[in-house]
């Protein structure tokens, strides 16, 4: 699988994706910092025109716990978009650029190529998560968020971001399957939008704790304290979506008729 990993890493490095995804995460961190600044200094924010007269930011407390929760929410909702698009690109580009056919009759197995794609995409997503955490903490300290920075609050908050990101990254395997079976970007992007909408709707209906695609957002606490934490079945659902998506993608590359 080393050859396939080498190929995927080189393709990703040479593309614009690392920079665009890094920029997207940076915007996310900046947005989180802005909200925290407003929460910390609401009067100054009003004076600067950052806050409308009727704006309410009651749910965002000026604490590390609240701020790290916000970063976890960014990794859940923004993550589906950013990590998802990365996964769509890694698989979809082979069909959009007609290079998939060159990967089908090689000494490196198709399964190794599929696994390398998932590994490299997931690896970059985890690096982005690391950047989100480091940059987010830096912004937090720079803003002077009150509270004991060395306490378990930050450790727990970071763990929440990491687990939320891991859950989100795991779910994006579905987009690798959609881009493969759909032979391009569009079916996978369509799937991504369906996932985003259904996750919101199912969570709003109160069933999110069991619905795999709502689990990362609920784990991040995005819907407020009134919502229950994800059920064990919800976490198992995320694992099932991941395993089935990866296996189905490998099966599709191995057994489908590749006519394009």
């Amino acid at each position: 699988m080393n050859a396939a990993l080498y190929a995927e890493i080189l393709k990703l490095r040479r593309s614009k994706l690392p920079w665009t995804t890094l920029l997207a995460i940076t915007i996310g961190v900046a947005a989180g910092g802005l909200f925290m600044f407003i929460s910390l200094h609401p009067d100054a924010a009003r004076d600067l025109g950052l806050l409308g007269a009727k704006a309410q930011l009651a749910t965002l407390e000026p604490t590390w716990d609240s701020y790290l929760g916000l970063l976890a929410q960014i990794s859940a909702v923004g993550g589906i978009g950013i990590f998802g698009m990365l996964m769509v690109w890694v698989f979809g580009r082979e069909f959009a650029e007609h290079t998939a056919k060159d990967l089908l009759a090689l000494p490196t197995s198709r399964t190794a190529i599929v696994l390398a794609k998932f590994t490299v995409a997931a690896g970059w997503c985890f690096l982005l998560t690391g950047y989100l955490i480091v940059a987010g903490l830096g912004v937090g300290w720079w803003l002077g968020i009150p509270g004991p920075a060395g306490s378990g609050v930050i450790g727990a908050g970071v763990a929440r971001v990491v687990i939320t990101a891991a859950l989100t990254i795991a779910l994006t395997a579905l987009f690798g399957l959609a881009a493969s079976a759909g032979r391009g970007y569009l079916p996978a992007i369509g799937t991504l939008f369906v996932v985003l909408f259904t996750a919101q709707i199912v969570a709003a209906l109160g069933y999110g704790q069991w619905f795999p695609f709502s689990v990362p957002a609920l784990h991040a606490g995005i819907t407020g304290s009134g919502q229950p934490a994800p059920a064990v079945a919800g976490y198992l659902g995320v694992a099932a979506v991941t395993v089935i998506s990866v296996a189905a993608t490998a099966w599709w590359w191995l057994h489908a008729d590749h006519t394009r």
Binding site: K11, R14, K16, E97, H98, T99, K101, D102
Partner: peptide
């Protein structure tokens, strides 16, 4: 097979 394809950014 068919049209030649390559990775454009490489």
């Amino acid at each position: 097979v068919e049209t030649p394809a390559s990775y454009p950014e490489l």
